[in-house]
Computed example of a mutant assay.
Amino acid sequence: MSIEHDAPRTLDTIAIGDVQITRVVEWHGPIAPGPEVFPDAPEPVWQRHADWLVPDFWEPRTTFFKANMQTWVLRSEGQVILVDTGLGDDKERPYATPWAHLRTGFLERLAAAGVQPEDVDIVVNTHVHADHVGWNTRLVDGQWVPTFPRARYLIPKADFTFWNPLNGHPKRGSLGGINAALGNQNMFEDSVRPVHEHGQADLWEESHRIDGNLELEAMPGHTPGTSMLSLRSGSERALFVGDLLHSPLQFVEPHAEVCLSEDAPAAVRQRNRMLERAAETRALVLPAHLPGPGAAEVRRDGATFAISHWAPFSPAR
Score class of each variant (00 low, 15 high):
Pro312Lys: 13
Arg23Val: 04
His129Tyr: 02
Glu253Val: 15
Ala41Arg: 02
Asn167Thr: 13
Val195Leu: 06
Arg138Met: 01
Val45Cys: 05
Arg23Met: 02
Arg193Trp: 13
Ala296Tyr: 04
Arg172Phe: 13
Thr147Ile: 02
Asp301Thr: 05
Arg109Ala: 03
Thr97Ser: 11
Arg23Cys: 02
Cys259Met: 14
Val192Gln: 02
Ala112Glu: 15
Ala100Glu: 11
Arg209Phe: 04
Ala264Asn: 06
Glu189Cys: 00
Gly199Asn: 09
Val192Lys: 00
Thr97Tyr: 10
Trp46Cys: 06
Lys157Gly: 07
Asp90Ser: 09
Asn125Asp: 09
Ala112Val: 01
Glu206Ala: 11
Leu239Met: 11
Ile178Glu: 05
Asn125Gln: 09
Ser235Pro: 08
Asn167Phe: 14
Arg271Tyr: 05
Trp310Leu: 08
Leu175Asn: 11
Ala279Cys: 05
Phe38Lys: 06
His289Cys: 10
Ile155Val: 13
Met187Asp: 02
Gly242Arg: 07
Leu82Asn: 01
Tyr153Cys: 00
Ile210Asn: 02
Lys66His: 15
Asn125Leu: 11
Pro33Thr: 13
Arg317Tyr: 15
Thr137Cys: 09
Glu189Arg: 08
Ser235Val: 14
Ser247Trp: 07
Leu175Phe: 15
Glu253Asp: 07
Val252Ser: 01
Arg93Ser: 07
Val115Cys: 00
Ser261Thr: 13
Pro156Asp: 04
Ala306Trp: 00
Lys157Val: 05
His208Val: 01
Ser174Asn: 13
Ala111Val: 08
Pro265Met: 09
Arg48Val: 00
Pro149Arg: 04
Gln70Asp: 10
Tyr95Leu: 03
Ser261Ile: 09
Ala158Cys: 06
Thr161Ile: 12
Trp135Glu: 05
Phe313Ser: 03
Ile210Cys: 02
Trp204Leu: 10
Ala316Asn: 14
Gly105Thr: 06
Pro293Leu: 03
Phe188Lys: 06
Ile31Tyr: 12
Phe251Cys: 06
Asn179Gly: 12
Ile31Gly: 00
Val268Phe: 02
Gly142Tyr: 10
Ala100Cys: 13
Thr126Ser: 08
His196Glu: 11
Ala15Arg: 15
Met219Ala: 15
Thr304Glu: 10
His101Glu: 13
Phe251Ile: 14
Arg93Asn: 01
Glu276Phe: 11
Gln20Cys: 03
Gly86Trp: 08
Ser314Trp: 04
Arg103Ala: 14
Ile31Pro: 00
Pro98Ala: 07
Gln250Gly: 07
Gly294Gln: 07
Arg172Thr: 14
Val73Asn: 04
Glu197Ser: 11
Gly114Leu: 05
Thr97Met: 12
Pro248Phe: 02
Ala112Leu: 14
Ser76Val: 02
Thr126Ile: 02
Gln143Leu: 08
Leu166Ser: 15
Asp89Glu: 12
Val19Met: 04
Asn213Ala: 06
Ala316Leu: 09
Val192Leu: 05
Asp301Asn: 12
Arg282Tyr: 01
Phe305Thr: 05
Arg271Gly: 00
Arg61Gly: 06
Glu215Ala: 01
Val285Ala: 06
Ala113Leu: 03
Ala32Thr: 10
Glu280Trp: 01
Pro312Asp: 15
Ala130Lys: 10
His222Ser: 12
Gly176Asp: 04
Gly212Leu: 07
Leu275Gln: 01
Arg273Thr: 10
Ser314Leu: 13
Asp202Met: 08
Pro33Leu: 06
Glu59Met: 09
Glu236Asn: 05
Ile14Phe: 01
